[in-house]
Simulated assay, not measured.
Amino acid sequence: MKKYLFFSFILATCSLYECKTPRTQTSKSVTVSIDTENFLSCCAPNLTLPDGKPVWCETSAVLYDNGTVYLANDKEMPTGLSPVFSKPWDRLADTTVQPKPLLAEPFLTSKKFEDFATNGDYIFLTTAFDRVKPGSADWDGFNTILYWKRGNEAQPQVLAPEEGAQNSVAYREQLSRLLAQNRPAFSAGMPYFKVEGLAVKDSMLLFGVREEGESYSKFDYRTRIVAVSFTKKKTASGERLALKDDWRIVTDFDPASVVELPKPLALSSLEYDPIRQVFWLVTSIEKDNLVDAYLWVATADELLNNRPFTLVRDKQGQPIHFGHKAEDITLVGRDHLLLIHDDDRLLTKVGSRTRQPNQAAYTVLKVH
């Protein structure tokens, strides 16, 4: 009887005070609001390339880690700078604090970075995989996945089948064959595709594909996600990571299923949120000088079993969107998301301020 009364008391107390236990947040229950919008600077104003053209800040990748924001530009930078750099989180918009360039050789030889990801142990950074030149290694740098132990960004390694490789172009054929499955017109593999998303969950990498088709000028917009596992291998100098041979398409999603949204929307970022155990997906549109982006969410079970993502809305039920081409998303603390925007060379605005060439817009979201 005493034991029964004790448990009755606990149940009553929990009812009164809403006792909380850890649980996975369902994709249907997520709402967000815009917390902050601002500009950051990739470099000093009026910086030019050797040909005299201005350096444009076209940020395509972002990662928050322990008070530092890591960013990547998808265009080359002048000598002495790097397309990969960092700024303190609490000084992100401060124009008096110059970015710190990451000058390790792989950051300088890889081309067109698109997305960061982390599983808490390693940080990954992928390029677009959107071009290769048959019979030549000239464009192999566009096909690169870098990784490093957290806190060791001075020594990035190349993810490749063979130790010592300068790029990850060896994995391009596997991606090409996979994306061409059940497409008779592409029996030799997908000729052109573009990776814009990267996420990592435990020991599984997930690549988000935005474009597929015959060439960079003739393609279809996509929101497809490819998963592959990775493993650690011992080497004479320590250890390295390598991908397994279990490539598979886990998501083939059509944002047009939500009829109220503009078209064509396609994937521009993917991120795993270990706190809520969900994946965040960003889709964007760039059409006739219109840029915009929308946020989606799915549980791991939904993503891995090709079930639709849920459009994220505010508390009033309206879709969250940004008026910028959001390119990457990262979790900041428990309840905030940072989105970096790549508006190409459009002079977009934040409030009444107009973007300058050395600037990129960003948005901070509050998750409720």
Rank of each mutant, 00 (worst) to 15 (best):
V69K: 11
Y70G: 05
L71Q: 12
N73D: 11
K75Y: 13
K75V: 15
T79K: 15
G80P: 06
S82C: 13
S82Y: 14
V84P: 05
F85V: 04
P88Y: 06
W89A: 10
D90E: 10
D90N: 06
R91Q: 06
R91N: 10
D94F: 11
D94R: 13
V97Y: 14
V97C: 10
K100G: 06
L102H: 12
L102P: 00
E105A: 06
P106A: 06
T109M: 01
T109C: 01
K112N: 03
F113G: 08
D115M: 03
F116G: 00
A117F: 01
T118M: 14
G120T: 12
D121G: 12
D121L: 14
Y122N: 11
I123G: 05
I123K: 12
L125V: 06
L125G: 06
L125D: 08
T126Q: 10
T127D: 02
T127V: 00
F129V: 02
P134N: 15
S136C: 04
A137F: 07
A137R: 09
A137K: 15
D138P: 04
G141Y: 01
L146I: 11
L146Y: 13
L146N: 10
L146K: 09
W148I: 02
K149R: 15
N152M: 07
E153G: 06
P156M: 04
A160H: 04
G164E: 01
V169D: 04
A170G: 06
R172W: 03
R177N: 01
L179H: 02
A180S: 10
N182S: 09
R183D: 02
G189F: 09
Y192D: 07
F193I: 15
A199I: 00
S203D: 04
